[in-house]
Design a protein around this nucleic acid. Structure first.
Lengths: 226, 226
DNA sequence: TCCGGCCGTCAAAATGCCGCCAAGAAGCCC
DNA sequence: GGGCTTCTTGGCGGCATTTTGACGGCCGGA
């Protein structure tokens, strides 16, 4: 599911967008000023940001820069200003698109689709296969193979595996795992992680009690080692 | 040098674009109908395509589809039509942006820069590595490597290392270290720092009792020297 | 020379976290 | 409703990490 962050200080615009997006089964977060927008983006990792430039607390361009400091998430700017130099400034600051108000909802949605589409990794072209000594993971086909036989994973197990495998060698914090797999409301239920990591290890590790691929970093998170 | 393919059947528009782009030292090819546009794209592999929708020989959307069949090159559509459904159709066919005529040259150029920029490969996203003579720190992966082997750090050790390493060569005060690692309530517990600096040195310094990278500034704080 | 502050070192005590097990709860498909 | 899988929850032992206290060395000032 695609996650959208809507940033605007006008409640009616936010409401209209939220309704339209949810109707198309997007997952929507919203913020009404720059500071909370940056916080929300960091917490939720949206797939696209719709950003109004006229925010009460800070310049919209500053928000763009704040985001670009650490993420390449597509940013679609909304603005009432038609002036060319404003557009140029926002685009050069790192925005992906610039839509002037009033805007057509159809057009905005199409631009969002375009932005999300091109941000997608080159899917299918190369085999999204990750291999280790004991098993292989095919992200596109959603299959795990061990010793020539496919391993059955439950939805949660798969989701967890996917997040870990997409960050090979990197440490993924417990909070991030919980939020990506169980949703934003979860951040303290580390026992879930214990249970499911144990299951993954039982199904995929050669010696589940001495894992070589799903490493625990005590107090911090977990790491997948190819 | 960035290569641009301009596709339009109106000679004066093509000329204006070519002049402007060449002045900014882009390399420019042009085509005036769909068929030659597809041929030119295949032959020259442009970095961005500026495409007028109203072509004499074929529908502009067909050109988009023809390109998308084999390339993800950014496509910026030009069109005299303001209708929303036209924009939606072009964007959903695979266009990256849609600019209505008459357009401001500044804006178009900014949109081109945006399109080219985001098509660029992810530069430096990973490998945020900091290296010293004896060890390397990978901030993104949360890994420390010494003599080819990964060094295990506890959460507190890592946190402390991170703060120091993010301020290379600079003095970080004891208060600041305590507050960043242990929280805002801590500012006097300098014994914590003594204990943990000793651990870091034991794990990372060649000669822990004569540190070369984690320097104590008596009475002030600590400094990381790369 | 003595004293006090500051740092490094060590080790014991306290705390918190992880792996493991198992049972209850909630869905899902007939 | 029955049987199945999957998800949630809880408790416990073991162990790594953190906290705390004590001791000695170094240095500058009285």
């Amino acid at each position: 599911m695609t996650r959208v962050l809507v940033v605007d200080d006008e409640p009616q615009i936010v409401r209209a967008l939220v309704i339209n997006l949810k109707a198309r089964s997007y997952e929507v977060d919203s913020a009404h000023d720059g500071a909370s927008a940056l916080a929300a983006a960091a917490a939720r990792h949206p797939d696209v940001v719709v950003l109004d430039l006229g925010l009460p607390d800070m310049d919209g361009v500053e928000v763009i820069r704040g985001l670009r400091g650490w993420t390449r998430v597509p940013i679609i700017v909304l603005s009432a200003r038609h002036a060319s130099d404003e557009k140029v400034e926002a685009l050069d600051a790192g925005a992906d698109d610039y839509v002037t108000k009033p805007f057509g909802m159809d057009e905005l949605l199409a631009r969002m689709r375009a932005a999300v589409r091109r941000a997608e990794p080159v899917a299918g072209e190369d085999d999204a296969q990750i291999a280790t000594a004991t098993f292989t993971v095919d992200l596109a086909a959603k299959k795990v193979n061990r010793d020539g036989v496919d391993v059955r994973l439950t939805p949660t197990e798969w989701h967890l595996l996917e997040v870990l495998v997409r960050n090979p060698g990197r440490l993924v914090s417990q909070t991030r795992l919980l939020q990506e797999v169980w949703g934003p409301a979860y951040h303290k239920e580390t026992n879930y992680l214990r249970v499911y990591l144990a299951q993954l290890r039982r199904k995929l590790e050669a010696d589940p009690s001495h894992p070589r691929h799903f490493i625990t970093e005590p107090g911090m998170g977990y790491r997948f080692e190819p």
